[in-house]
Simulated assay, not measured.
Amino acid sequence: MTATAPMRVAAIQTVTGITLDDNLARADALIAEAARGGAELVLLPEYFCMMGRHETDKVAIREQDGDGPVQSFLADAARRHRVWLVGGTLPMWCNDDARVYNTSLAFDPHGRRVARYDKIHLFGFTKGTESYDESRTILAGKTPVAFDAPCGRVAMSVCYDLRFPELYRGLAGKNDVSLILMPAAFTYTTGQAHWEILLRARAIENQCYVLAAAQGGKHENGRRTWGHSMLVDPWGELMGVLPEGEGIVSGTVDPTRLAEVRQNLPALRHRVL
């Protein structure tokens, strides 16, 4: 699908807590604020619905595909606010009682689900007393996903996927992607080191916009996330950044800008491998 008109997009940054209802209420308020500001596509961060005290807490609220309070919330919010809404991630049922899929769902302005992406790459990191292993509670997805929106082809991804450029290159090469979505909960340590560099690299090498919605602050469960939600243009320029705390970053995906960058430097057409 080729973009025919500019589209206003927004990334929502949260500092998600441990209570599902409170988190959904805050998300709804921020979606409403983004919509009032003219956003037509809104992206929520990874784990927007809950960041529990324990990694296993997500298993307790996992939902069956097509049924559950978080999915109902997303569909209803998209319809009420008349936006394309991508729900960062929520825990979805898998055939393993101890794990979930970490799933990103996209809804159109009528509240119809248009895409589901299960996070493929699972984060693992150890440095001193800081240690993470998502594979203990998450089952990896297998299939890259993109969907069509008024701004063009939109590629879905989640957090640790950002470190694997082959995912995006495959999507961009096949589908002429206009926008990459990156909901995340980057740790403070890894975010400070690599977050902006990686986002700008993905935009530059795929000559498309990148919209990144992050968790950003000190959470009830004691975890600290990096934040710095941002929108990056196809030349790698930052169009807006929110360093920390709750809020919104917005901007426009402009097909004229996309065409200009790709015409001036036709790197995607120059691929030989």
Rank of each mutant, 00 (worst) to 15 (best):
residue 259 A to R: 15
residue 137 T to Q: 04
residue 31 I to K: 01
residue 97 D to C: 11
residue 25 A to Y: 08
residue 75 A to E: 05
residue 59 V to Q: 04
residue 72 S to R: 11
residue 202 R to H: 09
residue 116 R to G: 00
residue 123 F to H: 07
residue 47 Y to K: 09
residue 154 V to Y: 01
residue 229 S to I: 05
residue 73 F to G: 06
residue 236 G to F: 13
residue 243 P to R: 14
residue 139 L to T: 04
residue 191 G to Y: 07
residue 15 V to A: 10
residue 149 A to S: 03
residue 236 G to V: 15
residue 127 K to F: 10
residue 6 P to A: 09
residue 134 E to N: 09
residue 272 V to M: 08
residue 181 L to A: 05
residue 125 F to G: 02
residue 119 K to C: 07
residue 11 A to T: 08
residue 48 F to P: 12
residue 148 D to I: 00
residue 76 D to R: 10
residue 176 D to Y: 01
residue 151 C to G: 04
residue 56 T to C: 13
residue 91 P to E: 12
residue 67 D to C: 05
residue 71 Q to K: 01
residue 218 K to M: 07
residue 57 D to H: 11
residue 175 N to H: 15
residue 192 Q to M: 15
residue 43 L to Q: 09
residue 212 A to E: 15
residue 110 H to P: 00
residue 184 A to V: 00
residue 217 G to W: 02
residue 131 S to Q: 08
residue 129 T to W: 15
residue 241 V to S: 05
residue 83 V to A: 13
residue 230 M to D: 01
residue 48 F to G: 04
residue 24 L to F: 00
residue 188 Y to A: 12
residue 240 G to V: 07
residue 160 Y to M: 07
residue 29 A to F: 02
residue 142 K to T: 12
residue 230 M to N: 04
residue 149 A to T: 05
residue 6 P to N: 06
residue 97 D to W: 05
residue 77 A to N: 07
residue 201 A to F: 14
residue 21 D to G: 08
residue 179 L to D: 07
residue 160 Y to P: 03
residue 156 M to Y: 10
residue 51 M to F: 10
residue 210 V to D: 12
residue 86 V to K: 04
residue 13 Q to E: 01
residue 37 G to C: 10
residue 18 I to L: 15
residue 216 G to S: 06
residue 149 A to M: 09
residue 87 G to K: 05
residue 233 D to R: 02
residue 87 G to E: 03
residue 14 T to M: 13
residue 190 T to Q: 01
residue 251 G to Q: 04
residue 262 R to E: 01
residue 120 I to A: 10
residue 258 L to A: 03
residue 38 G to L: 06
residue 25 A to L: 11
residue 48 F to C: 05
residue 38 G to K: 06
residue 132 Y to Q: 15
residue 201 A to T: 14
residue 15 V to N: 06
residue 17 G to Y: 06
residue 271 R to C: 13
residue 49 C to L: 01
residue 241 V to R: 13
residue 140 A to L: 07
residue 239 M to P: 03
residue 136 R to P: 04
residue 120 I to D: 06
residue 71 Q to G: 13
residue 86 V to N: 13
residue 118 D to F: 06
residue 172 A to H: 12
residue 111 G to P: 08
residue 88 G to P: 03
residue 168 Y to Q: 04
residue 114 V to T: 09
residue 58 K to Y: 02
residue 135 S to A: 05
residue 52 G to P: 05
residue 240 G to F: 05
residue 22 D to R: 14
residue 215 Q to N: 03
residue 228 H to K: 03
residue 109 P to Y: 11
residue 251 G to L: 10
residue 108 D to P: 04
residue 64 Q to F: 06
residue 18 I to K: 15
residue 2 T to Q: 15
